[in-house]
Design a binder for these strands. Structure first.
Lengths: 365, 365
DNA sequence: AGATGTTTCTAAATCGATATAGATTTTTCT
DNA sequence: AGAAAAATCTATATCGATTTAGAAACATCT
């Protein structure tokens, strides 16, 4: 049946007869309604055809809009369920600007242990069953730290970002707050009271490390601290120094190397330091690899772990107890962090006015 | 100026006068052309306005279509460059179905060392400067291995997937080949001659491990093999057994444990095995953690590494040399794998008819 | 019955890109 | 010069969703 333009019948009228109307040029063709769909993926249009409703009605029904009869909502949802409808992400994104993507912006430090992997897995786990996907945007040591952030914000390629290795006065944090773009940090910034974050309380780590060493009679401690540009370096150092004052023992932060250095310089420098200052009887390490290097260097110069010197380390993967018996450790569970930052990111997207989710995790000894 | 429908002037005519025409209802409004853009993000429309060309012309110019004058292409590209145009991914995706996303489907094995992190970084590195983004879709031990794959294919949420931990008769590979969906495997399948893959030649690893141990006078070797469902387990075992026959020495694959087991059962079982079969004088380990467990177990039962027994291991992160001196190792550089699979995935997307990129990497001793 | 108000739905426009078909312009040929 | 062919560009429809404004259906009141 072909009707010229004038004979156009309202869609609702046509549909009531169980038919379907198609516009082609200025002609309206009324065809039989297809009760079943072919082997192609269902869209709102499919549901509209099957239900006899208009596409926007279907959309609003699925989004639980207040102006749709609840009987209609039920019917639409049943059809959607029945044919396995999944919203097209490109369509939603184009129209609304929402990407349903959370982007994890990571430095590509070639770390020894798999805590990056754990972080990624746990974030993905938290995102399971939600409409959110996870995108990983690594940045490389030689490139501008702002580049990936600016890219994401300017192209709106994610709804929120998750950052790690946060500096106190972090340029990325400033930028994101300024742009009012949702984000979560793994680690605190100077303005962390105003944004979502998860952090492990490294001040307590430092404090308790000192006390453990003091309990074992150690009086002159060397700290292999995290890189100074990251805020948790300050937290760790503060914790150690406060405890040192409290306990009346000595603490020295190694002046040149940090816990993220590669194996060779770490081992060499620590060995040198121990030989120059033989009174050192305890080492606190902010990472697994610096702990291994510490042990290697004291073995090199003939000191005895657990006897004339102790090593304390924070680790995110339990490996040091395999390495040598007697290393003192505290475990930082990165999967908790991943789960938290993922949920905080979703919260920041869905509910931007709610107070930001924040967690300062107490280490368990 | 407002013109009724009849007085509509062709866009080219209007533009030639340096004006711009807007359709509103059935009225056409001709306004002054904006020479400069405001503070919002540029689209093809912006370039069209600034250049006086039609939107499709701009699109085709940027895509280097053959029917656009090269002078026009230059002009359009200059404007695009000048205003910092970046194509809207949702627009492209909706229209073309191309997502410019490559999805890495990973198992969330809680691995000790950071080779997953290295893989992710190196893939990201290879994707830098291309239009492709990387998406990570982990799957969990308790869930259907096909679920993420089916999701990606059915919703077309990526242009290609990268798989690891490939089984000989891998269901995912079968499905993807059947659907003709671009993919790359890290590891071989039974049909790997027909699809892109990267694999480390574990047959050679097994062979050379045996020879190294034989060189050191070892005659009874225990193999802690990878999990049997993965193809590289067979390659490793084959390599060892072939060399064993060749060299006239004995090889036993541990019957119950595999190289991915957790620390405790690994250590216990290996210690038991060594006590039951004291003639064992060499162990080949397919992973870092099984090598550590092997060392721990022989220390527990009083055997001496490097003296009455040797341990050979494959590792993706150099850590065993820190662990104990004397462990024999071969290094598998995961970053090469990541770079290769990323390029192979892009190739599979952009040039589906070209022969698949394949690499069987020879280990370096 | 007619006016008024509510509830529920629909039409049309839109987001940004591209494919298709068709319209100009320019070049070539007779 | 005029016709035919080639080169270059434009108009329109489209992908799948949502927003807006307005229409239809139904209920309530006088």
């Amino acid at each position: 049946m072909i009707f010229p333009c004038r004979l156009y019948r309202s869609n609702s009228a046509v549909r009531r007869e169980g038919l379907q109307q198609v516009v082609r040029g200025n002609k309206y063709t009324v065809t039989d309604r297809l009760e079943l769909k072919k082997g192609e993926k269902p869209t709102l249009k499919t549901i509209a055809r099957l239900s006899g409703l208009a596409v926007p009605t279907v959309s609003r029904a699925l989004n639980d809009a207040p102006d749709i009869k609840s009987a209609t909502k039920v019917r639409v949802r049943e059809i959607a369920e029945g044919i396995g409808y999944v919203p097209n992400r490109a369509g939603v994104r184009l129209r609304t600007g929402r990407t349903n993507v959370i982007s994890l912006v990571l430095s590509t430090q070639h770390d020894l242990t798999n805590h990056t992997g754990s972080l990624i897995s746990s974030i993905a786990g938290a995102l399971q069953g939600t409409p959110f996907h996870m995108n990983v945007t690594p940045y490389f040591p030689n490139e501008d730290i702002m580049k990936p952030i600016r890219y994401i914000v300017e192209t709106r390629s994610a709804d929120a970002v998750i950052l790690n290795q946060v500096a106190p006065n972090d340029e990325r944090v400033r930028y994101l707050m300024d742009k009012n773009f949702p984000f979560v940090t793994h680690g605190r910034s100077l303005w962390c009271d105003q944004h979502p974050y998860y952090d492990f309380d490294n001040e307590i780590v430092g404090d308790r490390a000192m006390r453990k060493l003091a309990d074992r009679g150690r009086r002159n401690i060397l700290l292999i601290a995290p890189p100074r540009d990251q805020f948790y370096a300050k937290h760790t150092i503060d914790g150690c120094e406060r405890a040192a004052k409290d306990l009346g023992i000595a603490i020295t932060t190694h002046p040149t190397i940090t816990s993220d250095f590669p194996r060779i310089p770490l081992t060499d420098e620590i060995a040198d330091f121990l030989q120059k200052y033989p009174e050192i009887d305890g080492i606190i390490c902010a990472s697994t690899s610096s702990a291994m290097a510490s042990v290697a260097s004291l073995e090199r110069i003939g000191r005895n772990l657990g006897e004339d010197i102790d090593v304390f380390a924070k680790e995110a993967v339990s490996i040091l107890e395999w390495f040598r018996p007697g290393i003192l450790t505290v475990f930082e569970d990165v999967t908790i962090a991943g789960d938290f930052v993922a949920r905080a990111a979703m919260q920041a997207v869905k509910n931007p006015d709610a107070p930001p989710m924040q967690c300062l995790e107490k280490p368990v000894f």
